[in-house]
Design a protein around this nucleic acid. Structure first.
Lengths: 141, 141
DNA sequence: ACAATAACGGATAAAATTGTCCTTAATTAT
DNA sequence: ATAATTAAGGACAATTTTATCCGTTATTGT
C-alpha cells in the first residue's frame, strides 16, 4: 500500500505529535530509536518532511524536529512521500482511466479509493497520538 | 497499491477471460499487444500465473495460454503475484500489529482493508470481462 | 523426420527504492 | 572564540523490482 519510506514518515509524524507536549524537539536518534528505523535513511525522510513543510527543524545542540503548528492529515504525509499515485491513479495503472472512460476494474475500486481517501483526508495526526501517549499503541516491532 | 507486475497480471487475466470464448489459446505476443506490456517481462508473469495454477499453457505452434476452467477471484491473482502483504499486513509495516495489539493507525485502516479484501475475494474475472468483450472497457493506454 | 512455432528457464541489465557514509553548515553552551 | 552538537546534503552502495536476451524444450504441421 505505502512505500517503506512512507511507513517511516507516518510513524515519524505520529511519534513527533505524541511527544511534542513533553519536550520541545526530538532529534534524529530519538526518532529512529522510537520507530526502530535506520538512522541515515530516517534522516532523508525527515528532510523530505521538512521540505514539505510538515516539520520544522533546528540545528545545533538541543536542535531537532517538531511538527509544524497546524492540523496535519495522513493524506498530507502520504502525498509528501509517495505522491498522488495511490490517491488518484487507476489500480491497473491506466493513464486514461476515468468514470467516463473506465477500465474493467474501475467500478469495483472507485469505492475503495474513495474510502481510503476519506480516511486519509479526515484523519489528523492528533487523532492518532493519544494511544501512543497512553502507551497502549506502539510504533515499533 | 499493486506492483507493476500485479497490474500486468490482472490485465492478462481479464484479457484472457474476455477472449477465451472467441479463440482457444492466446500467445504471448497477442497478450502483450492487448495490454500494452513489455513482451519479455510479460512472459515471466505468465510463467508465475501458470505455476500458481491460474493459467494453463501449451507449447508449440498454435500454443499459448488459457485461463483454467474454474472461477478465479481478483484476490487469487493479487496473492499469486504480490503475496499476502497488501491483504493482511499492517499499513505501518508493524509485524505484531493486530486487533489485540494495535498500532496507532490500526482502527482507521482495518475497515479499508476489509473493504479491499471484500472486493478482491468476491470479484471474479468473469465479472469484469463483459465490458472488454463489448468494447466499452479497455486494457491499455 | 524436419522445420517452424511458442512456452520455459537461466543469466543478465536497467531502474527504482532502500539504506549508508562522510563532509558541511548552523547553532549552542562553555 | 572554541568545541561540541545536530541537521543538511551529496555521493555512494545494496537490494528489489522491472525489464531484456538467448538458448532449450515441447509441440505441431508438413
Amino acid at each position: 500500500m505505502f512505500s517503506k519510506a512512507c511507513e517511516y514518515a507516518l510513524k515519524i509524524m505520529i511519534y513527533l505529535c505524541s511527544v511534542e507536549e513533553k519536550a520541545k524537539l526530538a532529534g534524529l536518534k530519538d526518532i529512529a530509536g522510537a520507530i526502530d528505523s535506520p538512522e541515515a535513511f530516517t534522516a532523508k525522510i525527515l528532510q523530505q518532511l521538512v521540505r514539505a513543510n510538515l516539520l520544522d527543524s533546528l540545528r545545533g545542540p538541543s536542535g531537532g524536529f517538531r511538527v509544524v503548528q497546524r492540523p496535519i492529515t495522513l493524506q498530507e504525509v502520504v502525498v509528501a512521500i509517495d505522491g498522488e499515485r495511490l490517491v488518484s491513479s487507476c489500480v491497473l495503472g491506466l493513464k486514461e482511466c476515468s468514470g467516463d472512460h473506465p477500465c474493467p476494474a474501475h467500478d469495483k475500486f472507485v469505492a475503495i479509493r474513495d474510502h481510503l481517501n476519506g480516511v486519509l483526508s479526515t484523519t489528523y495526526l492528533s487523532d492518532l497520538k493519544g494511544g501512543v501517549i497512553d502507551g497502549n499503541r506502539f510504533l515499533k516491532i
